[in-house]
Design a protein around this nucleic acid. Sequence first.
DNA 1: ATATGCGAATAACGTTTGTTATTGTAGCGT
DNA 2: ACGCTACAATAACAAACGTTATTCGCATAT
Lengths: 246, 246
Amino acid sequence: MALAPNHSTDMLIRKLDSIARLSDDERQAIERLPITVRPLVSGQDIVHEHDRSLQCCLLLDGWACRYQLLSEGKRQIFSFHIPGDIPDLQSLHLQVMDHSLCTLTPATVAFIPHAALRDLTAALPGIAATLWRDTLVDAAVFREWMTGMGRRSACEAIAHLFCELYVKLEAVGLAENHRYRLPVTQAELGDALGLSNVHVNRVLKELRDNKLITLHGGGLDILDWAKLSKLCGFDPTYLHLERQAA
Amino acid sequence: MALAPNHSTDMLIRKLDSIARLSDDERQAIERLPITVRPLVSGQDIVHEHDRSLQCCLLLDGWACRYQLLSEGKRQIFSFHIPGDIPDLQSLHLQVMDHSLCTLTPATVAFIPHAALRDLTAALPGIAATLWRDTLVDAAVFREWMTGMGRRSACEAIAHLFCELYVKLEAVGLAENHRYRLPVTQAELGDALGLSNVHVNRVLKELRDNKLITLHGGGLDILDWAKLSKLCGFDPTYLHLERQAA
DNA sequence: ATATGCGAATAACGTTTGTTATTGTAGCGT
DNA sequence: ACGCTACAATAACAAACGTTATTCGCATAT
């Protein structure tokens, strides 16, 4: 008898199914995963640089980010994560964390033991391929952020990030009408894009003055999607959103 | 009867064995892979953005890099690759290329059909995990480059890249005594690190003036490893070089 | 009511880095 | 020997962005 489905496995199945269609076998195997759900406060580390993790986490609710602290209080943020993401899936095959992961808002997180994931992926290569693919999309986003920091102006980089986040949120039903909640401070935006908080503020003012966005109280509204996405040369190919055949 | 080992499968076996110890079964399966070897000239595209690739390539000899062209002739280089690397392994699970791959020198490349790799990874989950891990290290290097572009000075970023390349080359026996061939122009360094070629030249002069390196004719010599690696805060953890248990 | 703290907004000033241009040098083909 | 090309070196100038500091608004706590 299969266990009753619950929120965590539902979320995971929906996630993987959005990457590549799951078979019934695969679905049932996921439903049997031993999962622990925990609520977390905002700003809490989930895993920390140098940790040797024994589990992966699935973000059920709230936002998180991966980051690294440098000398002189500098910080680099590598990614923002939204519900449905598995931000530390890489820890399944890289024993020691080379960065940290923390919540940006109060969050709900499901933990899945590495051992269970290893059994699952060894038994069902289709699931392994799907999870592998998820980490490859992750890397594709890293590359796009590199382009942003290396070869885009601050204004283009911020616009590009806003477009990226909209497309990702829209894909999981968390945004529509070019509007979404963005629980990220200007300092955090700067640490993600390699800018100072002051300059982020300047650029946001410019985007507002040009009637491209409104942004207040954590709510972002893209007033002119066509203009904003053209301004930064946004092309969603790198998000690899189309569902893949099995 | 197993096929006679050849240079390509040897290289691949050595590569994977350096990541996680291979079993005899796995070794033999790799030796049965259908591989095509081709010599390439310098500056030749191996795969191009928007391509749908049907094979992965293993770099047997020479250097390559992944890059993307932007508007106004701008270019972002995402990675440099050396013999033993599989620079487009991601194409196994991401149907359409979001960037290009080209040679930086005359090179020898082995091509492995996706179909064969898919069969191999479906039959032998250990190999799948090893290849997966390779792409995860790739992503870890992307993150480190993000840190370089976002939160390091031009001088630190260049120094960090020189340290990274030395450690990678040394690990595959292509460098020793803090010296190696670096077949990369100053413009290419700039496109990798988000700098102009002029500024790269300035920084190289500074590094030379400070007796940290010599660089001429494509040969780099790190004169003071301790000082150079300290200057940029180099910590090789992110390269995940230690061999993993199976 | 007051204090406290975090994030946003803004100003003045400094510096790293980009841009454009010119020159030098080495290799390579004819 | 000659020209061609790619790469490196250097200078002068401009611009984007960082730094430091102050103020404001707003929420939460006391």
